[in-house]
Amino acid sequence: MNEQQLLTFIEVARRKHFRQAADALQLTQPAVSAQIRSLEEELGTTLFYRPNVKLTSSGSLFLPYALQIVDLIREAKESISENEKKPINRPMVIGTTSCLAMTVLLRLTHYFQSFRQTLPLRVLTLSADEIITALNEGQVDLGIAYKLDSLPSHIQTKTLFYDSFALIASYDHPLAKKNTYITVSDLEHIPIISFAPSTMERRMMDQIFKQYGIQLNIMIELTSVDEIKSLVAANYGAALIPTISVDSKSSSYRRIHMTKFDHSFPVQLYYPEKRYQSRTLRKLIEDISGIYTVEDGLGD
């Protein structure tokens, strides 16, 4: 049993498809099949049902062990690199939502530069549910997303800051031409471009407006905050988006100020409790709350 066999097994389990796993690993499909077959022979069991490529009960049992072994190999390599002061080539991978991606990237880049860390950094844009799946499967080291209602017991959390929803509209929109504030009850009569029901942002929005007894007049539903802002800029309607996603210097839309709309929701760090953490990753988890400060407009 070797590391490549384990990585191949994990990738096939993740994608449920031999060819897709081969493409991701930059191997041929016969090579992937041969590695899985060799691993099954060594373990004396079948790991995948064929042809639908689903984990057998033995495969499901073996998967967490495979992840742990790969983590231990990574830990050994990184410990040796740290001991010999060699640069670590493996990037730190952060999973976050589209609303938070730019802020996460900017703050983390500044953080690593502040103590001259040259660690490669990758930020993946995922839905909140996909972030938890990616953490479970070892695809990302950390997740940053709005607070989820339920989590696996082994996923730990840390609150980073609190966000809120802001109303935006094109400069040509009637709301942008008013000099008065609008109230939350006014939203019932305004065509709204909203997040799709499957998104965490929409679920939070529905909960907030349910408390206010408000039924929003939603006309268009999208999954991406950038798509929403594009339609707002084209004057298809107003939109409620997380305040952190609002560009105060935008020439395409402006923020519409509201009264009697008091609410907030936490942005949290997510990480597996028992997964191997490099020294740099441990330090980041310890320091990360300080990255998002009140001075940045992102604090509690």
Score class of each variant (00 low, 15 high):
76 A>K: 08
17 H>V: 04
216 L>N: 10
249 K>C: 08
221 E>Y: 05
157 T>G: 05
29 Q>V: 12
53 V>P: 00
9 F>S: 01
54 K>V: 08
30 P>C: 03
261 F>E: 02
250 S>F: 02
298 L>K: 02
35 Q>D: 01
259 T>D: 15
118 T>H: 13
174 P>A: 12
198 S>T: 03
95 G>H: 02
75 E>C: 14
91 P>G: 00
172 D>S: 04
177 K>F: 03
104 V>S: 01
195 F>S: 05
167 L>V: 10
82 E>A: 05
40 E>A: 07
293 T>Q: 08
218 I>K: 10
191 P>S: 11
77 K>T: 11
8 T>Q: 08
147 K>N: 11
263 H>I: 12
186 D>K: 14
136 N>V: 14
292 Y>P: 00
105 L>T: 06
26 Q>H: 05
74 R>Q: 06
149 D>P: 06
137 E>K: 15
194 S>Y: 13
125 T>H: 06
90 R>G: 00
94 I>E: 01
42 E>M: 14
34 A>P: 00
251 S>N: 07
191 P>W: 04
153 S>Q: 11
182 I>F: 11
157 T>E: 13
226 D>G: 00
31 A>D: 01
108 L>W: 06
112 F>H: 04
183 T>M: 07
148 L>R: 09
190 I>P: 12
248 S>C: 07
93 V>I: 06
235 N>S: 10
68 Q>V: 07
243 T>D: 09
76 A>Y: 15
46 T>K: 06
122 R>L: 09
229 K>E: 01
17 H>G: 05
214 I>Q: 13
156 Q>H: 11
53 V>Y: 05
47 L>R: 07
25 L>G: 00
210 K>I: 14
186 D>A: 06
166 A>E: 04
39 L>N: 03
77 K>V: 15
150 S>A: 15
183 T>S: 15
107 R>A: 15
173 H>G: 02
193 I>K: 12
208 I>C: 10
222 L>T: 02
176 A>C: 14
261 F>V: 03
59 G>N: 09
251 S>E: 10
149 D>Y: 05
159 T>I: 08
154 H>G: 12
250 S>K: 04
142 L>I: 10
21 A>P: 01
122 R>S: 03
152 P>Y: 14
254 R>H: 12
193 I>N: 03
178 K>F: 11
156 Q>D: 13
98 S>L: 04
105 L>R: 09
50 R>D: 03
141 D>Y: 13
273 E>Y: 15
239 A>M: 05
248 S>Y: 07
275 R>Q: 13
127 S>I: 06
31 A>C: 03
80 I>C: 07
275 R>N: 06
94 I>Y: 01
70 V>E: 12
136 N>T: 09
55 L>S: 06
13 A>D: 05
187 L>V: 04
137 E>L: 10
206 D>M: 13
82 E>D: 15
124 L>H: 05
66 A>I: 04
248 S>H: 13
224 S>Q: 10
29 Q>N: 14
48 F>G: 11
99 C>E: 10
289 S>Q: 07
98 S>I: 08
272 P>K: 06
